[in-house]
């Protein structure tokens, strides 16, 4: 009749799933992924600010007093710091967009995408180094 049930298979060593940490894929956790993540986050942030910015500028149609009151909130220290973040987001998004175009259209673009990400970061830092002293001087210093 039926033979004795086969012994349960001995726990064969199952290979551990690939760790999500570490460089287990070409993409995850590397420059390409962070470029994509930052592009999305800065993009959504800039779009939301754009809606607010068109609305606050529309106050020029109400009266000079109302517009000056609203734009006055942009000159406070807290808003001044947020503007610096906004400008940094604009610069990163702009240069990273150029990087995306080069990756798409240049034959050697994909090969240099990682280097180009660091060029984008470098350009952002350099332009911010030029902008920050001027802007923070206007916000915190005299300039009134």
């Amino acid at each position: 009749m039926a033979s004795a049930p086969a012994a349960p298979p001995s726990p064969a060593p199952v290979p551990a799933p690939r760790s999500s940490r570490g460089r287990s894929t070409l993409y995850r956790g590397t420059e390409g992924m962070w470029s994509w993540v930052l592009h999305r986050i800065t993009g959504v942030g800039l779009f939301l600010f754009l809606l607010v910015h068109v609305l606050d500028t529309a106050m020029v149609r109400v009266s000079p007093e109302v517009y000056n009151d609203v734009i006055g909130t942009y000159k406070t220290p807290i808003m001044g710091v947020m503007e610096a973040g906004l400008v940094a987001a604009v610069i990163f998004h702009a240069f990273n967009g150029i990087r995306i175009i080069l990756v798409d259209f240049l034959a050697k673009g994909p090969r240099y995408q990682r280097v180009m990400f660091w060029v984008v970061i470098g350009l952002t830092v350099v332009l911010m180094a030029g902008f920050l002293p001027r802007h923070l001087g206007n916000v915190f210093g005299g300039g009134h």
């Binding site: 517009y67 734009i71 000159k75 702009a94 916000v139 300039g143």
Partner: peptide, 30 residues
Amino acid sequence: RISGVILLVLVFGHLFVNLMVGDGVHAIDF
């Protein structure tokens, strides 16, 4: 891609004229 390149010029120019030149954000009013 096309609008992105044009926007780079337009927005950088906008930021430069409104925030870098003169008193920057302090000069913006009606």
